[in-house]
Design a protein around this nucleic acid. Sequence first.
DNA 1: CGAGTAGTTGACGATTGTCAAGATGGGTGG
DNA 2: CCACCCATCTTGACAATCGTCAACTACTCG
Lengths: 254, 254
Amino acid sequence: MAGQNVISLETIKVACQNCSLSALCLPMTLTPEDVTRLDNIIERNRPLHRGDYLHSEGDPFERLRVVTTGSIKTYSTSDDGSERILGFHLPGELIGLEAIENSRHRCSAKALETTLICEIPFDALEQLSHETPSLQHQLYRLLSREIGHETEILMLLGKKGADERVATFLMSLSERFKGRGFSASDFYLSMSRFDISNYLGLAVETVSRIFTRFQDEGLINAKRKHVQLLNLARLQEIADGNHHKGRSQRGYHS
Amino acid sequence: MAGQNVISLETIKVACQNCSLSALCLPMTLTPEDVTRLDNIIERNRPLHRGDYLHSEGDPFERLRVVTTGSIKTYSTSDDGSERILGFHLPGELIGLEAIENSRHRCSAKALETTLICEIPFDALEQLSHETPSLQHQLYRLLSREIGHETEILMLLGKKGADERVATFLMSLSERFKGRGFSASDFYLSMSRFDISNYLGLAVETVSRIFTRFQDEGLINAKRKHVQLLNLARLQEIADGNHHKGRSQRGYHS
DNA sequence: CGAGTAGTTGACGATTGTCAAGATGGGTGG
DNA sequence: CCACCCATCTTGACAATCGTCAACTACTCG
C-alpha cells in the first residue's frame, strides 16, 4: 500500500503537471494519503470525438472536467436558436465551474476535435476539500481566478476595435499554448472562423479580412486552420491598442 | 449565552435578509453557534462618502465587502490611464471575490454616493467554512454564481446593439432593485453617463441619445439621474433583441 | 468526382464614434 | 439670495468602422 502511494503520486505528477488542477494535486501540504484520495476520485482520459457533447445547457452537474488533449468550446443558446460562444478550452483548462451554483450546467460544451478529458466528481472533491484545508483554499483560489477573468472579457469586448480583438485572441492562444509547453507561434485553430467571430463579437467576414490583412502585413502566416505568428511583439502592441501611431483610445478620464 | 444566541440570530436575520450573503447566514444547516461565530467576524456598516475608495488595484486583499446602502463602482485602469468600469454594486451585492486568488485586489472600488458596507475578514470566513461544511458549500456556490455572470456580459457586449445594451442595463438595475425591495420602475442612477457608457462599451453621446429617444417613445422618463421605467415589458423586449419587428440578429446557426 | 460546407473577397450601407457647440444644473462665493 | 462657473449632459453634423449581402473559391467528405 505504501508502494502503491508512491507510484500513484508519481503518476499524478506526470499526468497533472501541465494541468490547471496541478494547484490541487501538487501543493506540498497535501500528504501522500491526500494525494492518493484525490487520485482515486479522478477519472482519467475519457475520449471524445469532434462534435461530441460533454454536456448541454440544463444538464445536471456532477463533475468538473479538465481538457488533457484537444479542445472544447462552451456556448449558450438563446431563445432564437443562435449560439453565443463563451470560451475555448485548451489542454489543462477547466470546464464546469459555472455549474456549481445550482448543480446544473448553464452552458453547453462540445469537442472541437478529438479530445481527452479528466473528470472529477464534484461531491467527492468538495468532501475531500472539507477534510483538507489546503485543498479548500486552492479551490477558492481557482474559482476566484475565473472571476478575475471577467476583466479581460470586458476589456476585449467593451473597448477594443476589430483588429485589437483578433490580435488579442491570437496572443491569448499563443500564451496559453506556450504555458503548456506547446509552440507559442505555430499552432492549429481547432475552432471555425464562425466560432472565432462569434466569440469576438464580430462578423465572420471581418475576422477573415483581418486575418488576410495581418498576413499581408507579415504579422502572421495563416493557411486555413494552421497559423504561424511571425511578429509576436507587434501583435501584442495591436492587442494592447497601440495601433499604427497611437490609435484613438476609446477610454475616458475620470 | 443561549439568550445571547437568539438575539444574535434575530439581529443577523434582520441585517442580512436583503443581502447576497444571506445564503451564508440563514441556511437551516447552520447552528445557532455557527451563526454567532459568523456574526462575530462581520464588521458592520462602515460609512463611505461619494468618491471614497474601498481599495485600489494591487491593494492587499483582506476582507469581502457587501454594500448595505448606496452603491459602488469597480474599475480597472489601463496603462494609458483610461478606466474600464467592471461593474456597479448595489445593496446586498458582494465586492472582492476576484481578489482571493492572489490575496491582492485586481481592480479599484469607489463609492458613487454615501454608502454603508459590511466587511468580512476572509481568513476568518475561510476558517469558519472549513469547520462548517454547509458554509463551505455556500461559498463555492457564491463564487460559481459570479462565474456564471460572465455569460451575460458576453451576450451584452458581444452581440447586442446600442439600444439593447441600454435597455439591458436599465432592466438589470430594475430587477436588482426589485429583488431588494425597492421600486422596480423608479430609481436614481448614482453613476454618471460616462460610467454607464464606459460599462456598456458605448460613447457617452450614444447613451445620451438613446435615453432621449426612449423618453420620446414613452418607454422611460429620465430627468438627469432620476429614472422612471414606464414600459417594462417593451424595455425587456428591446433588451432581448426584439427590436421593432424583428431586428437582424447577429447570431449564427451551427 | 461531385456536392456541400467553410472561408474569402468586394461593394455598399447602417450603426455608432468623433468633434464641436450649446444647454442644464449643482455648488460656491459675493 | 442671487449670480456665476464648471462639470455633466444633450444635441447636431459628419466620418469611420464594421455588418450585410452577394458572388466566388477552396477544401472536405462521401
